[in-house]
Each structure stands twice: as structure tokens, then as C-alpha cells.
Nucleic acid binder design. Structure first.
Lengths: 346, 346
DNA sequence: CTCATCCGTGGAATCGATTCCACGAAATCG
DNA sequence: CGATTTCGTGGAATCGATTCCACGGATGAG
């Protein structure tokens, strides 16, 4: 169909395929005459090298794989965008895959990326590292973990130091008089889920509180579980006056539920979300967040991957997180009106 | 590095590479004995076929390209997600590219996708079809346009009938007493930009209004231009009492500016956005939108592309749009307080 | 002026999988 | 029972680009 090969270019330029190849890939041993003729021929024919053939021979594909849990999560959309832009400036194309927070699909995509012989893979790992991840490592394919890690695997990673931001958030809430702080946790099967709940527990202890088990709900980082979790927290006998959500989508679910119940955020209940996304600043009241930069994470992940591809073994990077106080958590404490607090499940 | 080829499998199974290939690709002319031995060998070696080599010989790559203007736009994130899931169920991997609303990057990505010999491309085209798009078509690569089209090119597409939803929005606003309705337009270089402003103008006429040129601002579908546009509209001598934004990001920018000015949406000014995104329902007040389904658009685009790849020439599909009324546009008209209306630019 | 060096070039091998072709064995038919 | 079809198989060609190797011509040094 497409038909235009390097032989056509060589023929038109009056040289051999070998010389044409050398000119096109910038090999120094070429004459100026050959260079101009081949360049002209390639332009005239609108020649595009066949990336497959090139990759087959040179064992490079000039592409990297990026596997994220969900592109629809704005944090990962930002991350994907940043990775892609950074990779592009280094001459790599990004093959974006979507695990859909689903381990089976995650492994299937990893297999596909291996098959396509990408030069390296940036992955936010899912699960315990038994499935596709193990194949990756066994093959020695350059790999970098992003956002999440897997215990016991010595793979360079870019993650966030959740603890600092969470400690700031808890002490901020405590300073406003909140003593019963609820937590919408991510799944313990992810490192971020585990890190953040551990940081939360530690922060409570620092502020002199004990963690009440009924004020922690374990969800799955998706919006629906944020709503379910907020409902569960409100159904407590003594509900929380402030809630911290472990990611943006769970916060979105929680906000939806609070609106539905007619509870006013920032007045009836304080809310802080992990992950900053543009929309949170637009809410009324604007949402306080623990912020960390997806864009920076993406850029650094690409840098690390390029180092690994080049044969190095870079140190892992831990990025900071920081509390951004907005209106959703700046009013003084005010107990929930009883009719809402004790409402039954719907 | 990876090293495991079909020859290794063949050797372990005690057959030739040709037979191994036949077994692995499900060719009927194989003996049960060969089948079991090759299957076992492939499993034991954790063999993954080299997609490059296969694609080179068979002229199929089992991959499609998807080029969107911006993954960070939730509409396109949803679209990408839907395309990817639909493609995956048909055995195709999706290579996602990001044009960044930038024609140069758009063309560069198209070139890359052509080089990688994807089996087909789904693209939200940018520009006038002169650059990369023309290469695509000249090569006869199966192509489907999504969301946007290019005049004069006979390529199957999936688009939205913006006119219906916009007409509903205008007549809804008119019924509330609004007579000065502002419009934050997308760029006229995109088909969606042109369609929507045309629909808006026509809808105004149907409601008996004339379009005031000072109430239309031409932006670029990005958040910053939404803010700039809203600022310009408010600086009018006789500012609009209602505003329609041509996409979600421009609406986001507009909302940010209104918050900054202390104007209350739904009370001081009515706002309706084109594109529904989950977050708009969470705003206080919730945002009225002209809704159309990114997920459906993505699924249909993949269906059309598969038809084109199979040699067919499917009809283009036009999806409906529909007004969803929420609080941002349901209060009766109330003129803007003057100090806000005449404020200077900052 | 001769011999060694360097440089640009083309031929040929190569990457890994698929597929055409031909061969031998088994199965089927008259 | 001989002739023919069917079937599984291996060898070899192929896809398109890269790269090793060898060759011839030009240049430089002695």
C-alpha cells in the first residue's frame, strides 16, 4: 500500500540503499554530493522510513511505553501529558496504555508493550508484582515505576512523599479544633494506599489523637467508592467534622454525596483532598488539597528511564507534597446538624 | 537482550520455525502433536513474538493511532479511554498521541504514526488539512475523523450535532428573560469552532434576537482564553446576563474569572458550557451544559475505523447533543451590579 | 615516485517472523 | 492394488532498513 522504501529513494538518487541509509541516518561517511541527492529524493517521494524494519535491525524502537491506572483521572492525564512531552523532546514516542485499575488488563498491556519491543516502560504498578511485572524484570527491559512502587523490587521510581503534606493537613485541621478526622483511604494493595494511611495514622498520633477505626473507610481510588465512604463515615454515631480523601476521584465522589445530602462543605464539614487538580480551585468553596506535581513527576520519570536505557542505574526520586489551604477547610469547627448526621443509608 | 525467538521455541519443541509459526498463529495445517509441543515450549520459555518482525512480514501491526488535541481535556480523556477499550476488545493496541492544540506537533505525530505503520488512525484534525493529513490520505492509510472534520475531505467521521443542544440552550436562556447572551467561541480554524458559532447565531435569530458582535469572543478552546473572553465580555458597556462557552476548558477559565471578580454564577450571571464533564455537576451552583457523549463517540470511531480497515467505506455518524439544565442557568434574570460590569482589566 | 592511509561506496548478511513451495507419507478412490 | 489427493512439514525467500566488509580511488608521507 504505502510502498515507498529506501530502495526507491536510492534508485531516484542514483546511489545504493546502503548509501541512502547512511545519509538518512546522519552517518558521517557520506559525500556532500550523495547527501544532497538523497535528501532531495527523500523529499520528493515523501519518504517515511518503516519504523518496524528499522527497529528489527537496530534493536531500538525509539518508543517507550507508559502504563497508567486510568487516563480519566486528571492526575494521570497530567502525568501522561508530561511524560509524552518530555519523551518527545528526546525523540521517543509514547505508547499510552490504560490499565483501568484492573490487574488483568494491566498485565495484558504489559505483554503487548513487551511484544512491541519498546525501549523502556514507565509504569504505575498494580498488584504485588507477580504477573506481568515479573516478566518485565526477567527480560531486563528498562523500567521505571511512577507514583507507586512494589515492595521488594529494586526498580528506580518517582514517588511522592505523602507524609509531609498529610501531616500538615492533619495539624491544620487540628488547629481549627477538629478532633474527629475521617479518612477515605485508597486500597492497601497499592503502595500509595498504604503510605498515605500510615502517614495519616502517624500524623494523628503527633497531634495527640488516637485513630478511631470507624472513621477510616477503604475504597479503591475511584469516585464511587469516595461517595460510599463518605456515606459510611456520616452514618457513624459520632461522625467526623473533617475528612481527608486519599485521591482526587474519591474526593469527587465525596463532594457529590455531600451535595446530595445538602451538607455545606467548609461550614458543616471540612474536606481536604490528596492530589491537586485545576477544578478543585473552582469549587465553591474552593477545596483545600495536598498538592504534588504530576507534571514534574512525569518529566523526572522520563529522565530516569532514559538513564536506565543508557545503561545507568539512577537513584529513585521522592517529590515533596504540600498543603494548600482553601475555603473548604478554613472555617472553625461546627458540629453537624443531627438530622444529617444520623440519617440512614439510602 | 530479550533473546527468545521463535527459533528457540522451535528448537525446544523439536520442530522447524515454520511449524512453530503455524501453531502459534493458529494456522489449521498443524498436527495435534506439534501443537502440544510448541505450545508447551512457548509457555516454558515465556515466549513473546516480536511484533516488529511480524508486522514487517505481514504488513499488519495490530495497532491503531489516536491523535487528540489535548489529553488533559476531560472530553478527550474520556474519548481516548473509550477508543482504547473498544480497540482492545478487537485486538488492537492504541498508540495515543497528543497534538497539544499545536499544528506542528500534530504533524510530527502523524509522521510518527505513519512510520510505525499503524493499521489505521483516528484523528481529531487540526488546521486545514494541508500538512500531515494530506500525507495520510495520499498513502491510503485508513483514517477516521473524530469530533472535528476538514472541509472538502471525504473521510468517514464521528461528530456531534452541536446545533440542537445550542438551540435548546439559547431558547432556555431566552425563556428566562435573557436577551443579551454572550458567547465564548472556539477558533474558527476548527470545524467545531465554526459549527458552534454558526448554530449560536442561528439560534439567536430563531429567538428573535440579533447577534451583537461585542458579545462574541474568539478563543482557542483552552482555559486561559475562557478567562480572557469572560473578562472582555464583562468589560462591555452593556454586558451579557448569560454566557455560553464553546467547550469545557473555556468554561473553566470563565468560572475562575467570575469567582475572582466575586460574581455569583446563577445569580449575577447565567452560564452554560458545551461538553459535559463530571466536575461540572459538583460545582456550586451546578453548571448547566450542552451534553454529548465522548464514550459513544470513541466506540463508534473505532467501529468505523475497523470497517475502513476491512475495506469498507462507512457512512459518517452524527451524534446528538442535548441541554442539561442545572442551577447555573435556572434563576430568573438579574442585572449585573454596575461596579462589576464596568471594572477595568487587571 | 612508491607505499600506506583514508574515505565513500556497494554488495551482502542480518534482525525475527511469515508464507510460498516442494517433498514425503498417509489416506482415499476407482 | 496402483494412482491420486490430502496433509503436515522443513527449506528458503521475503518484508525494509542497518551495518559489516571489501574494494577502488584519492591523498599524504617518506
Amino acid at each position: 500500500m504505502t510502498g515507498i522504501t529506501i530502495k526507491d529513494v536510492a534508485l531516484l538518487a542514483g546511489v545504493s540503499a546502503a548509501t541512502a541509509s547512511r545519509v538518512l541516518s546522519g552517518h558521517p561517511a557520506t559525500s556532500p554530493d550523495a547527501r544532497t541527492k538523497v535528501a532531495a529524493a527523500a523529499r520528493d517521494l515523501d519518504y517515511r522510513p518503516n519504523a518496524q524494519a528499522r527497529a528489527l535491525r537496530s534493536t531500538r524502537s525509539d518508543s517507550i511505553g507508559l502504563l497508567v491506572p486510568d487516563v480519566r483521572n486528571p492526575f494521570f492525564a497530567d502525568l501522561a501529558h508530561a511524560c509524552e512531552q518530555a519523551a518527545l523532546t528526546s525523540g521517543y514516542v509514547t505508547l499510552l496504555g490504560n490499565a483501568n485499575e484492573n490487574e488483568h488488563q494491566h498485565d495484558r498491556y504489559l505483554g503487548t508493550l513487551i511484544s512491541r519491543r519498546v525501549d523502556g516502560i514507565i509504569v504505575a504498578p498494580l498488584g504485588d508484582g507477580e504477573g506481568g511485572i515479573r516478566s518485565l524484570i526477567a527480560r531486563g527491559i528498562p523500567t521505571v515505576f511512577v507514583d507507586r512502587t512494589i515492595d521488594g523490587l529494586d526498580i528506580p521510581s518517582v514517588t511522592t512523599d505523602s507524609a509531609t503534606g498529610i501531616r500538615q493537613a492533619v495539624s491544620h485541621l487540628a488547629s481549627l479544633g477538629h478532633t474527629r478526622i475521617g479518612y477515605l483511604s485508597g486500597p492497601l494493595s497499592t503502595s500509595t494506599g498504604r503510605d498515605r494511611i500510615a502517614a495519616f495514622t502517624a500524623a494523628l498520633a503527633e497531634s495527640g489523637f488516637e485513630q478511631a477505626p470507624e472513621l477510616v473507610y477503604y475504597g479503591d481510588f475511584q469516585a464511587a467508592s469516595g461517595a460510599a465512604g463518605m456515606r459510611a463515615l456520616l452514618n457513624n454515631e459520632d461522625p467526623p467534622t473533617a475528612v481527608l480523601a486519599a485521591d482526587s476521584l474519591m474526593a469527587v465522589g465525596a463532594i457529590g454525596l455531600l451535595n446530595e445530602r445538602g451538607l455545606v462543605i467548609g461550614r458543616d464539614i471540612a474536606l481536604v483532598a490528596f492530589d491537586d487538580i485545576e477544578f478543585f480551585a473552582l469549587l465553591n468553596p474552593a477545596l483545600s488539597v495536598v498538592s504534588h506535581s504530576a507534571a514534574e513527576m512525569g518529566r523526572i520519570a522520563v529522565d530516569l528511564l532514559l538513564e536506565v536505557i543508557a545503561g545507568g542505574s539512577p537513584e529513585s526520586v521522592v517529590l515533596p507534597s504540600e498543603l494548600v489551604i482553601r475555603a473548604s477547610s478554613s472555617s472553625p469547627i461546627r458540629p453537624l446538624p443531627l438530622p444529617f448526621a444520623r440519617r440512614k443509608k439510602n
